[in-house]
Design a protein around this nucleic acid. Structure first.
Lengths: 200, 200
DNA sequence: CGTTGGTTTGACCAGTTGGTCAAATCAAGA
DNA sequence: TCTTGATTTGACCAACTGGTCAAACCAACG
């Protein structure tokens, strides 16, 4: 079923997705135009539409690719590992994701902010299932006295909130910090915060 | 200098701002149309433009009004109060703001996400000054051994992140929680989190 | 070299959008 | 009641937007 892609197809599709990520993450879906994306990709608009059938298609392709990357760090949380190490490792992985992929973070934020019209389904099924599963692990840990007794769902929300904040509100964070690097202090703060919170 | 406003002006300007808040917070600036806002306000588009000279003007008016409300809870942090009570009070006030004014929170999030084109100036001056001032108070508290030694700036970021997350990512939070109310658990979690973090 | 199928583009289109304007309508004080 | 200034609107416009299409172009293989 998979058509073998020519080199030109690979190059252009990659260029379009890269350009789309830049533009969509900066201006949101409706705020971005095909002309902008095409120009950023070094193509004409009709040429872009030769590779993707519509603006929505580019956006959807980006979101689909993003969701995997986004959930991976949580999937890696291991029930057999050391509880506090596992949870704090997750927080640090998620923070690294914000640092290294801020455009992806903002693309996701834009989507959810506007009511998640394209991914509401995935959030309510895949994401919910994954979180429920990991929440059960954390709950077991706290019942075994290995981590403090906190609501696992809100614990996970807090990790999302604190890490994505540095990507999504980057301009605000930098405006307030002046010329200090945000992520160094963030990593230290997160470490202290969750170490104290989780200590049973 | 202030022209005395007629009752009709007051009513219509209020209707436009209310409608603008609804639409802008849901679709972002470029995703919102004057027709949408006018219809939501119960006016025709030319009539709306009789009260505000442009789409931008409506948006700016909303942002200006919002900024005060948004900074008030932090302004209320009192150097002479009990340190832990003051900081936790701030977090709870900010959480209440997210619960009671989610549209304002999303309007602000949309703006900052897109690089804060309209309020970058305010962030780098008024906001930075306010945060620096309060950070100094917190630093003094931790040097006096009254709260734990954490970076005050990142502490404030964490409060912003965790509280606004519940408004800005509302759909995601609700998708994961199912039919449980987010804000009850959030208040409990925040209380536990900051109590443990701040304990010297 | 010629053919074939993938690639690129200029011209175009219909719908939408922010904004204008002259004319009509309305409210309230003299 | 009449007048004046505030309010409202239908018609309109230019710019932009997502998307189409036929024709041109090009790469590669026989």
């Amino acid at each position: 079923m998979e058509k073998p892609q020519t080199r030109i197809q690979q190059r252009n599709q990659a260029a379009i997705l890269s350009a789309g990520l830049n533009i969509f993450s900066q201006y949101g879906f409706r705020g971005s135009t095909l002309d902008q994306i095409a120009e950023a990709a070094g193509l004409s608009k009709p040429n872009l539409l030769y590779y993707f059938p519509s603006k929505e298609a580019v956006h959807s392709a980006l979101l689909a690719r993003l969701l995997d990357t986004w959930l991976d760090p949580l999937k890696a949380l291991d029930a057999t590992g050391d509880p506090i190490t596992e949870i704090m490792g997750y927080a640090q992985r998620k923070l690294a994701l914000s640092r290294d992929y801020p455009r992806e973070s903002r693309l996701f934020a834009n989507e959810v902010l506007q009511g998640a019209p394209h991914i509401a389904e995935v959030l309510a099924t895949d994401l919910k299932n994954l979180v429920d599963e990991k929440a059960k692990i954390i709950r077991a840990w706290s019942e075994a006295g290995k981590v403090a007794d906190v609501d696992p769902h809100h614990l996970i929300f807090s990790i999302w909130a604190m890490t994505q904040h540095y990507a999504d509100f980057d301009v605000q964070v930098r405006a307030v910090l002046g010329d200090r690097e945000p992520y160094d202090g963030a990593a230290v703060f997160l470490d202290a915060m969750y170490r104290r919170l989780l200590q049973p």
